[in-house]
């Protein structure tokens, strides 16, 4: 069996309880290599809980998570990040007063080689700026005037672009994106969707959490429908309509097969 046959992420029987509330109720999760997997569900269905469990922001009480077939136990998203898993938060997690380059490297700055870096811990600003410019160029985002520009001077779409570029630059396995288009206008959403497809074209898988059905159906390869704390089914967007998906996720309809994709 080649490595491509082993799913990138496979989670089985995940359970997370908060007191009497069961946020994740024996749920499964699967992400395949190089795909865009959309995760949809009603408010409170627990879709963000399951994604948090995958990236280490929550520690499940039961169940196992395998990444490329190997069991993992992340105690924080920073540990997940060390394995090449990046997250684009809904709030973006950018520092507004710092430059684009500074933001790209927050928490993993490059230091100068030799004495300056080792003893004076001097940052290698030219290298970081070069890298940041390169990454933004690759994603066609260099409408930005200067890489030293503070993030607060950028538009909403550009900020989203910087956050996605940061994730894409460092992710080797997959990126989780939480509602990347929720705060954007029509035009900017379009650009971010193109960006998501560009990232997939580079072989990086994406978990897309979104409420926006047209966006989900446009970019997703598979859709994971979450209901009442567990995975109800996965569907192929080509075989179902948006109203089917909404019916499944709200319980108005029950899917015939749990794994339709």
């Amino acid at each position: 069996m080649s490595t491509k046959d082993v799913p990138l992420v496979q989670a089985r029987g995940l359970v997370k309880r908060f007191g009497h509330v069961v946020a994740i109720d024996h749920s499964d999760f699967e992400l395949r290599h190089g795909e865009i997997l959309a995760v949809i569900g009603d408010n409170g269905a627990g879709k963000s809980s399951i994604v948090k469990a995958i990236c280490g922001a929550l520690q499940p009480d039961e169940g196992e998570i395998l990444i490329e077939g190997k069991p993992v136990h992340f105690s924080s998203p920073i540990e997940a990040r060390e394995m090449g898993i990046e997250i684009v938060y809904q709030t973006l997690a950018l520092s507004p007063a710092l430059s684009i380059a500074d933001n790209m490297f927050t928490g993993r700055e490059l230091r100068r080689p030799g004495f300056l870096g080792k003893w004076l811990r001097m940052l290698d600003k030219p290298a970081m700026e070069r890298f940041a410019r390169e990454k933004l160029n690759e994603l066609g985002l260099m409408t930005v005037q200067s890489i030293r520009q503070p993030v607060e001077t950028l538009s909403g779409g550009q900020r989203q672009g910087v956050a996605v570029a940061r994730a894409a630059a460092f992710a080797t396995k997959f990126i989780i994106m939480d509602e990347p288009t929720a705060a954007l206008g029509v035009k900017e959403s379009r650009r971010v969707l193109e960006l998501i497809k560009d990232v997939r074209a580079r072989g990086i898988a994406i978990v897309l959490i979104s409420h926006n059905m047209p966006h989900v159906f446009e970019v997703a390869d598979r859709i994971h429908i979450h209901r009442l704390g567990r995975r109800l089914c996965t569907i192929d967007p080509k075989d179902y309509t948006m109203s089917d998906a909404v019916a499944f996720m709200t319980g108005a309809k029950t899917p015939e097969v749990a794994d339709a994709a």
Binding site: P96, L98, T106, G107, R121
Partner: peptide, 24 residues
């Protein structure tokens, strides 16, 4: 201005939640 620690001081003062989420 020239060490990671210094950038983190600014980031924490700017938006502590964003700083935490981005790995500081």
């Amino acid at each position: 201005n020239h060490t990671a620690w210094g950038r983190h001081v600014y980031a924490v003062g700017d938006d502590p939640e964003a700083a935490e989420l981005s790995g500081i």
